[in-house]
Amino acid sequence: MDKRRITINDIAAHAGVSRSTVSLVLQKHPRIPEETAEKVRQSIAALGYTYNRNAANLRRRTSQAIGLVINDIRNPFFAQLTSAVEERAAEAGYMVYLVESAEQPARQERLLESFIEHDVAGLIVCAATGTPPQAFDRFLAAGIPICMAVRPYPDARLDFAGSDNYGGAKMATQHLIDLGHRRIAFLGGERENPVRIDRLAGYFSGLDARGIAFDPALVVESRPSLTSGVADVNAVMRLEARPTAMLCYNDFVAMGVMHALRCAGLTPGEHMAVVGFDGMPETEITHPPLSTVQLYGRKIGSDAAELLISRIGDPARPPTRRVEQATLIVRASSGRPLNANGE
C-alpha cells in the first residue's frame, strides 16, 4: 500500500469482504461470524489501520464514551465503584472518562462542561458537597442522560444508584447500644453532604428508638480524612462526660480515630468502641480489625452504569432508583459488652 491513510475500503479489499462487514467488525457487532471477524482483524493488523472513533461517532451522531465524576480518587470505595462502571460500560461498547471533583461544586461544573464539549453519551455523577439543586437543569434540557450515584440528589427526574446510609447508621448505632453504650459520638462528614445527612438521621433514629437523648456535643463535623479523625476524637475526649463509643462517618475517619486513641494510651475495642462506614478492605487488617458498615461500591457502580446505558437507549423511560442495603460487619474494634458500671 502507498503512504496515504488506510481506509475501510482498503481493508475490505484486502480481506475479501464488503465495506459494511468491516464497519460492523470495527463496531464489534455480534452478528458477524468469528471467522469473518478474525479475517478482518488480520487485514487491519497487516495494513496498520487505526480506527477513528471520533469520526465514526460524528457519522452516527452518537458517542461511545460516558463521563464519570467522583469525589475522591484516593478513596478505595470510589475505586471499586469506578472499576465496576468501566467493566459494565465496556460490555456495552462504551469507554469511561474519569474525573475527580475534590468536593468543589465549581470544579465539578467545569468538568461537566468539558464532558459536554467532548460529546459524551451520558454522565454518572457522585455530586460534590454543596451542589446546588438546579445544577443539572440545563443538561437535562439538552437531553443529556444523567445518573446520580452514591449521594442522593433532590431531583426526581434523575436515575439514582446508591446505598441505604440511613439504615446502615441506625444498625451500627443500635449495635453499640446493645453492647451497653449510652454516650455514642458521631464523628466526621460535612454538614451539607447528603450521605452524612442520611447517616446522621440513622444515628438519631437509633438513639431515639432506645430512649437515649441526643447530645449535640457528641456530633463533630469535619471534612472526612485520616487526619480529621484525629482532630474529631480529640474534640469529644475533652468533654466532661466523654463518650464510650464512636460511630465514624467513614473508615478513613475511624482509622484516624483509632490512631488518636492509641496515642492517648487508650486501646480501641477495650477502652473505646469504634465503628466505621464503607467497608474498605483495609478494615480487616487494622489494629484491632475495624467494625464497619459494609457498602457495596462495585454493585453501586454496576447499577449506575446499567441505569445510564438504559437511559441512553430509552430516554423516555421513568426514572429509577436502586438502593443497596448495608451490612454491619462486627469486629474487635466494637469491643465486648459493657458491665453494669459502664466499663
Rank of each mutant, 00 (worst) to 15 (best):
L261V: 05
S163H: 09
D155T: 01
N75Y: 06
I11E: 08
A241F: 05
F115W: 09
A84W: 04
R238S: 14
F115T: 10
E190L: 14
S23N: 14
R311T: 02
G143A: 05
A90V: 12
M272Q: 00
H271G: 11
Q294Y: 01
D178W: 02
V195F: 00
Q174W: 01
D278L: 01
N250V: 02
V69W: 06
R311S: 09
V99A: 14
V236P: 04
M171T: 09
E221M: 09
L111R: 06
A15I: 12
F186L: 10
T62N: 10
T283P: 02
A185I: 02
V293N: 10
P105S: 11
V253W: 01
A149N: 13
G202W: 03
N165P: 07
L123R: 11
G143M: 05
T36Q: 13
C248H: 06
R317Y: 07
C147I: 02
A305L: 05
Q325E: 09
I66G: 03
R5C: 06
R331L: 09
G189L: 07
L68F: 08
Y94S: 13
H181R: 07
G313L: 10
E109T: 15
G162A: 15
E100A: 13
D314A: 13
M237C: 09
V323K: 03
I144R: 14
F214P: 02
S20V: 15
S101W: 03
T21P: 07
A15S: 09
T50H: 13
T50R: 15
P337A: 15
C263M: 03
V69E: 00
A84C: 12
F277L: 11
E221P: 00
V219E: 03
F78H: 05
E109P: 00
A332P: 00
L111F: 12
V293Q: 04
Q64E: 10
F214L: 14
A260E: 04
E87C: 08
G16Y: 11
H181I: 07
E87A: 15
A235C: 10
T244V: 12
R321N: 01
N250W: 00
V25D: 06
S163I: 09
L68M: 08
A13H: 07
H29S: 08
Y249T: 02
E91V: 04
V220R: 07
L158M: 02
A128M: 11
G16C: 14
T227P: 00
